[in-house]
Design a protein around this nucleic acid. Sequence first.
RNA 1: CGGGGCGUAGCGCAGCCUGGUAGCGCACUUGGUUCGGGACCAAGGGGUCGGAGGUUCAAAUCCUCUCGCCCCGACCA
Length: 502
Amino acid sequence: MAKRDEKAITPRGEDYSQWYQDIVLKAELADYSPVKGCMVIRPTGYALWEATQRALDGMFKETGHVNAYFPLFIPMSFLSKEAEHVEGFAKECAVVTHHRLSAKEGGGVEPSPDSVLEEPLIVRPTSETIMYAMYAKWIRSYRDLPLLLNQWANVVRWEMRTRLFLRTTEFLWQEGHTAHATHEESWEEVVRILDIYARFAQEWMAVPVIKGLKSESEKFAGALQTTCIEAMMQDGKALQAGTSHDLGQNFARAFDVKFQDEKGEWQHCWQTSWGVSTRLIGALIMAHSDDQGLVLPPRLASTQVVIVPIYKDDAGRARVLESAGALKSRLMEAGFGAVLDERDTVSPGFKFNEWEMKGVPVRLEIGPRDVDQGACVAVPRVPTRDLREGEKRQKETVPLERAPEVLRGLLDDIQKALFARALAFREERTWPVDDYADFRERIEGGGFFLGHWCGSGDCETRVKDETKATLRCIPFEAPAEAGKCLVCGGESPRRVIWARAY
RNA sequence: CGGGGCGUAGCGCAGCCUGGUAGCGCACUUGGUUCGGGACCAAGGGGUCGGAGGUUCAAAUCCUCUCGCCCCGACCA
């Protein structure tokens, strides 16, 4: 039987990058666009983002946040009001300098020379500046606090090298920006949001993450401190999946965001900002997918189950489709995202492979034999238990009337199995390391390395230069443990995570 | 911006070294047999060989220039 594609795809092999792109393109999640560095998100990919939005938005609202929207364009001068901020973003800003085109000699158009903007506008790389300019107007009293806003938007960062979903010139994200009366309160917010991100990653995406603090060199430009969640991809590299920043009073001072407290004294607000982006979709793909294609966690899959009818002739087709249609209705009424693949132009085998490639968590096969006994055959995209001897795929015959409850259980099992598998994968590739030479050798194979660190930027830089690994985070949940810095031998209070990253 | 690779049918590629007027697989169309893991047989349709210039009787093939894409690196809340 001829395979559709000769080229093998290997999640953990040398062609990991190619494998990843193959999945994105073949599962029709996204495509390259005419604009270099930007991607087109296709309906199947966008559905994942919508599911992400729904889930996160629910959690934000539960904790008192509301959505708003601020302009795409930011006056150039705004960016430079906070010194570290401008330094961090100046190198990757798209700048709008004209507001009109005019016909060019010899055809075509060009920016009209007489339409130069008085002040150039930058396309937002993030919205701290434009939002806080408004916060300064809106906040007057401690009674106006806390201000808890979130915005779903696109941002542009002119990165030198891009990769579908993981780092694109334009990307979609959510950015929350809050203002508080005290540092205690704002820090609580930072942690509250980081917890939401971790919960979403683990409970919805089934991607285990480590919560921690960024080092001085890795923190957000303009923040006091940056917290993050870090995940491990199937090539052993780390991916920062979300950040939550303690901005202190840095931006409040730069933008004059002040309030009068109960005693009538003017104080600068304590602020936070936090965000996750479409990069999460990349994380999802890289964490779970396999050589068969995309693997989606049931909680995020818009199509949770596909019904594939099997028949030999027109009479059989009518009979099977009747049962299959009733089954689909029953499942949809029970709240599942169900699709019935009625196509008569491709074989069942073709459908099996195609839906597996698209990552649909469960397939239900229904053929004449099943109709006779009022049943169907359930096949999960990934096994939820160890396969028996000689068993290629986990299959289970299910009476039609029990299909919803069996499906419910199967989807739950898949969700759990994916998380367990990803967690085991990470734990198998996480090691304590105390010898720098040993570390330099083993980092080549990927993985997380727990090493002591004295806290100096010099040691951090040296590791980066010599191993291409970076300090991913100082984990919150790591036990205090005195030791010697991996690099310089200086005093260290706890182990931190070193890894190569995306 | 450096290093490497690639532009030939909708997709994936061969042909180039050694010039002779374009081919394979998939997809597509038609007919038939199939259909519980990517079906088979037969007959078809489809190409400015990325672009420009040069060499030559003759260029996908050789030379020069150019445009674009991908990978690695530099860069990256």
